[in-house]
């Protein structure tokens, strides 16, 4: 892959790439059945809900298609309630811009199911309890900085998947910025409205991280004169 030099817009403020690393803290809380699950979900901090809806993604960054969230996995494979498991798995995480609203949606889904199927209160077998964890996230700057699209593209090739994860997922949902960092910067600093929209349209939950890197690369490369995709 090579590129010819073109006249690229220089950003007023460069994009600094950050990365994030996680540590898991145990809450000591565990659920044996759906009612206990819902009750604990209502009282735990948002970082617990974030953990259980994103931890699969973080642990299986190389797998495709991405497995569902922890709640769906537990309901499907441990409680053996496939219908509810599928309902929880298919909640579209992209639609939510706050952990609070995501939490409410999952709770509502389970409570509706329980109301319709009160006889289905299954108990997890011993050892199969749902343990609640939370994610402690450490955010730190990387050495990568971009002032124009060409430098941005170069950085996209080199940054770690944790950095892509941070700017695409963490920024939007956990830091409640409403959109991913890449879209915001290319639009605000480079005037690349179309590119910003295309990046925002990517459904990051259905890519592997390397797949997402490749998709970002293609979208950005298209906007650089002479760049061969």
């Amino acid at each position: 892959m090579h590129k010819k030099t073109g006249h690229l817009v220089k950003a007023k403020e460069p994009f600094r790439f950050y990365t994030r690393l996680n540590l898991i803290e145990l809450t000591g809380k565990k659920a044996n059945n759906l009612r206990e699950l819902v009750e604990i979900m209502k009282e735990v901090p948002g970082s617990v809900i974030y953990h259980h809806t994103h931890h699969y993604l973080q642990q299986h960054l190389y797998l495709s298609p991405e497995p569902p969230n922890d709640f769906a996995y537990w309901v499907t494979y441990i409680l053996r309630d496939e219908e509810l498991g599928e309902e929880i798995a298919s909640i579209d995480l992209c639609e939510f811009s706050t952990i609070r609203s995501l939490r409410e949606k999952i709770i509502e889904t389970i409570e509706q199911h329980l109301a319709q199927n009160p006889e289905l209160l299954r108990t997890a077998p011993p050892g199969g309890e749902f343990h609640f964890f939370k994610t402690i996230t450490f955010i730190l700057p990387t050495p990568y900085v971009a002032s124009d699209l060409s430098e941005f593209l170069e950085a996209i090739k080199k940054i770690s998947i944790h950095s892509i994860y941070f700017h695409m997922f963490e920024a939007k949902l956990r830091l409640e910025k409403g959109e991913n960092d890449f879209s915001r910067w290319v639009e605000d600093m480079l005037g690349e409205k179309e590119l910003a929209r295309d990046i925002a349209r990517l459904d990051p939950y259905t890519f592997t991280m390397e797949g997402l890197r490749a998709a970002l690369f293609r979208l950005i490369a298209k906007r650089i004169p002479g760049e061969i995709i």
């Binding site: 540590l23 970082s47 402690i136 450490f138 955010i139 830091l175």
Partner: peptide, 20 residues
């Protein structure tokens, strides 16, 4: 190794999101 390093850093912090 990474988790040990993060554990050491977390001992001074109480928040769930920590800027290093």
């Amino acid at each position: 190794l990474r988790e040990y390093l993060l554990l050491f850093l977390s001992l001074e912090e109480k928040e769930d999101i920590i800027y290093l």
